[in-house]
Simulated scan of single mutants.
Amino acid sequence: MVLNAEVIEEVRETLGDATLRSFLARMLAEVEETRFQLLSLLSSADYATLAATSHRASGSAASVGAVGLHAALKEIENTARGPAAPTALPDLISGLSARIAETRLALISLIGPL
């Protein structure tokens, strides 16, 4: 599942359509920026900061119903806290681009242009 439409509708009812679109666009931009930060943190093997950074972005995704993106970020966070971090994180972080694109397309399909 990429999106939880019920959560998105609740946010739309609370914030209004224009504010929802702005919020979603900002969340996607934040996650894209986070992806670059995660790559930098990975190269310096700063797994604790990497986990915290992923955690922060996963909360933003969850708050607007982007469940697929939230799950990907939580997996990165949890992996960064474990022994598999050096070997598993490169693939998980590189896969984030596809999740962001998938989420953007699903949002546009659901609510129109952001």
Rank of each mutant, 00 (worst) to 15 (best):
Y47I: 00
N78K: 10
G82V: 05
L39P: 03
E75F: 04
R104M: 08
E33P: 04
G95K: 03
L92Y: 01
E33N: 10
L41I: 14
S58F: 00
S44T: 15
S94D: 07
A66D: 02
S58W: 00
L39W: 08
E33V: 12
L39V: 12
A84Q: 09
L38C: 14
A48P: 06
E32F: 03
A80V: 10
S60W: 05
R56A: 14
S63W: 07
T34L: 10
A85N: 05
V64L: 12
A72L: 08
V64Q: 02
A45N: 09
A51W: 03
S94I: 00
H70V: 03
T49K: 15
G65L: 05
L96F: 04
G68T: 02
E102W: 02
H70E: 10
A61D: 05
A66G: 05
L41M: 15
L89K: 07
R56K: 13
D46V: 08
G82I: 04
L89C: 11
A72Q: 14
L39Y: 07
D46I: 02
L50E: 02
V67I: 13
I93N: 03
A57L: 05
A51Q: 09
E30H: 08
E32R: 01
Q37S: 15
S60E: 06
V67T: 14
E75N: 12
R99G: 10
R35H: 10
L41Y: 06
S63R: 07
L38K: 06
Q37K: 02
Y47H: 05
R104N: 11
S63T: 11
E102R: 08
L50V: 06
A51S: 13
G65W: 08
Y47C: 01
G65A: 05
A72W: 01
I100F: 11
H70D: 10
A61S: 12
L96N: 13
G65K: 09
G82T: 07
A84V: 05
T49A: 13
A84R: 08
T79E: 02
G65E: 07
R56V: 11
A88Y: 02
L96W: 03
V67C: 07
A84E: 11
A88S: 15
A101F: 09
S97D: 14
S97G: 13
A48E: 14
A71F: 06
L96G: 15
E102F: 03
L73R: 01
G82H: 04
A57F: 07
V64G: 11
I93F: 02
A51R: 06
V31W: 03
F36T: 12
T53C: 14
S63P: 04
S60D: 03
L69G: 11
R104A: 14
L73K: 01
K74E: 04
E30M: 01
H55W: 03
L38R: 00
A85M: 06
D91L: 06
T103F: 13
A71G: 13
E30C: 00
L41V: 14
A48M: 09
E33F: 09
R104Y: 08
S97I: 04
V31H: 02
E33R: 00
A61R: 00
T53G: 14
H70T: 09
L89W: 03
P83F: 00
A84P: 01
S60N: 08
